[in-house]
Design a protein around this nucleic acid. Structure first.
Lengths: 158, 158
DNA sequence: ATTGCTGAGTCTGTCAATCGGACCTAGCCT
DNA sequence: AGGCTAGGTCCGATTGACAGACTCAGCAAT
């Protein structure tokens, strides 16, 4: 049985485009740091072990793509420096990060458990991703879902 | 104000580990294909434009890490070949893919919209990710959430 | 005024990964 | 025997990751 997807082009697929940004080895690790409140070059470098040059590139790329912005700040007794903060586009990556964290916790954690959890501010309970359709139904398993060509789908040419 | 995260090691962070697998340029694109039912080497290659060598490596890595498995199949009149199918570990990446898709649709789609949507099998409505805490509360914005050291957290040494 | 420290880089050289294109191979078909 | 096809290998050029040394601006202590 030939999968229907073969008739459709993927040239404008948004997963592909997203992965041009997210699909570099250190991008999500940098974003994890920023979500955790670590916003300064050297703090990130020391914590993550990312090579300087790579961190410089990654931060510049994320700023250029609009995921982070560079903000000046000044500690008393120091000159002006810059820190990196999430834009709205960056904040919206939060579900991606939580989804990756959930998957990693399930399959890749050490026996003692995950080193990082996310808690609901109001009640303190752990936060996870869920899938839900627009009519409000829970979607438990991947099999309950069907991929379909969307409004921007194009037929394959060649 | 010094972020609390600086006191904790990230050496065993599951996001970092997950990104060793997912953080390669083509991994999620390959998985998108498999979720879409495209399971064969050449179909993937033609659709995605991934260089042969890279696709070979990526598939082998995903099999080795347990995300995909290689299954023999036989079309009538052909010899036995292999196709790539999702393991349970692979199926569980579904929320990650939907989260990335949602973000990409919002910020990176062409004006006419996304080429790919996912629909609930029962009702046909579009499926999206949501964040929810374990007590069932909706979590609307990243600010409603606090990152915390988990059971496997280790203090930084040096 | 010199010296030193610090955060945030740049420069350089090495090694690995990506890419595109050509070549190979096993089994089926004519 | 020769051709086709899916799924690869092999090769050379380019790009990216990495480690380590060097730079640079401004504040501070001598």
């Amino acid at each position: 049985m030939r999968p229907a997807a073969l008739d459709w082009s993927v040239e404008n697929c948004t997963i592909g485009r997203a992965m041009e940004i997210l699909g570099e080895r250190w991008t999500l690790v940098v974003l994890r740091e920023v979500f955790n409140g670590v916003r300064r070059f050297d703090d990130m470098r020391v914590r993550t072990g990312i090579p300087r040059q790579v961190l410089t590139n990654r931060l510049a790329m994320l700023v250029e793509r609009g995921v982070l912005r560079r903000e000046p700040y000044r500690e008393p007794g120091s000159r002006v420096r810059h820190e990196y903060r999430l834009t709205e586009m960056g904040l919206d990556l939060w579900p991606v990060l939580v989804a990756v964290l959930g998957w990693g916790d399930r399959y890749l954690a050490d026996p003692e458990g995950s080193p990082l959890t996310v808690a609901h501010r109001d009640c303190g309970a752990e936060v996870r991703v869920a899938l839900r359709c627009e009519r409000g139904h829970e979607v438990a398993r991947p099999r309950d879902v069907v991929p379909q060509p969307g409004p921007g789908a194009r037929r394959r040419t060649g």
